[in-house]
Nucleic acid binder design. Sequence first.
DNA 1: ATGGGTCTATTTGCATACAAGATGGATGCC
DNA 2: GGCATCCATCTTGTATGCAAATAGACCCAT
Lengths: 218, 218
Amino acid sequence: MSAENPTLADKLATAIADGILSGALKPGTRLDEMGLAEQHGVSRTPVREALRQLAMSGLIDMRPRKGAIVSKATPDQVESLFVAMAEMEATCARLAAISMTPIERRRLQARHEAMLVLANAGQTEAYSDANVAFHGAIYAGSHNAPLAEYAMNLRRRVGPFRRAQFQVEGRLVRSNQEHDAVVRAILSGDAAGAHAAMLHHVSLVEDAFEAFAATNAA
Amino acid sequence: MSAENPTLADKLATAIADGILSGALKPGTRLDEMGLAEQHGVSRTPVREALRQLAMSGLIDMRPRKGAIVSKATPDQVESLFVAMAEMEATCARLAAISMTPIERRRLQARHEAMLVLANAGQTEAYSDANVAFHGAIYAGSHNAPLAEYAMNLRRRVGPFRRAQFQVEGRLVRSNQEHDAVVRAILSGDAAGAHAAMLHHVSLVEDAFEAFAATNAA
DNA sequence: ATGGGTCTATTTGCATACAAGATGGATGCC
DNA sequence: GGCATCCATCTTGTATGCAAATAGACCCAT
């Protein structure tokens, strides 16, 4: 939506989304229209439109006449989000195994191998970025825009709840090993294998999140 | 979203969505704000918010400063939508096989058996309604709100492109037979089987659509 | 006749103004 | 002292008005 001539509402939507994803706006934070409006130097009208847009994406919750807050989820709901994301990723991986072009497959492998280096070097930051690109490549490889978009959307939504997953000891190398299984399955066109491997991988990410959350709660 | 105190924008969103789903607003139809506004006896403000909401759901396309139209898809995009829906349904079925409660399973079976009667009686209309409920029950059975919602959303989006699928000769009975495989797999907790059976089923729906579209084009 | 350009009219985008519902505190009552 | 009620205030929802951009028509020139 809105490629080149972003309207104010669009810009606000991405700005607010960035705020949420960067952690500046924590789950539960109230988003009052007036505040956002003068904070961005605009009127309430585009703010309201941006909020409505974000509400549909799930990043924020709006209740009629009660305002909007950054989506705050119960542990159950977070769990659901992780499961949903795992399923979407697995589905994309499955389709990617079927649909990826030879070029895409080569690029995926190259990406994967580059990440092995980063993992061994313990470059958490760089690995994390590469990881996003890696998963994005698989979404794209599904050659199915709706699924890829939704997978990306879910990834964004879980973002606020999984920050710093790679800080769990040894997660980097294990992540890369799991990727290896995914990549092998995709490259060999093994749809079911890709599905299973990705499901396994993302489920472990969830475990890592829980481990991290637990150590932080303590 | 917005359960009890729907705002005008919410009501408009559902009204317009209904118009699209019912076929009153065909793909490609221009949605000018002023027209919709006075047609519903409101101002442009809630109309704009409703449109933005619908745009995020994919039902309409908005281009900045160029207005909104009912989503018009190329055959490729329609194909993608069908594939996406098939995958989502299959995923929900997989999770349903794992997560459904005994009560849900019994109800699903009851639903399914009731539909067998309708199919044999050739009650296209009633079967179609029951079919929506049947698939909805499986979405719900996944016990995963994000996935269920998205599956429902996709079902809505493909709606305008699949109207009257059951008009293909003999589709009713075959649909019910396919459901049988799905139900059996879910009831027996066979996750992979449920996935495969549902994928098969929904893919055939797509074929039926194509057959229908083809006969109409001729 | 066709292509380009300008001008007008329509439509979208944004701001402001107004209305109505929700929230929180003070007040009165038990 | 606790609790319910009422009122003030604040926030959201809707309408209207104005500015800017787009699209379409018309005209002119080649």
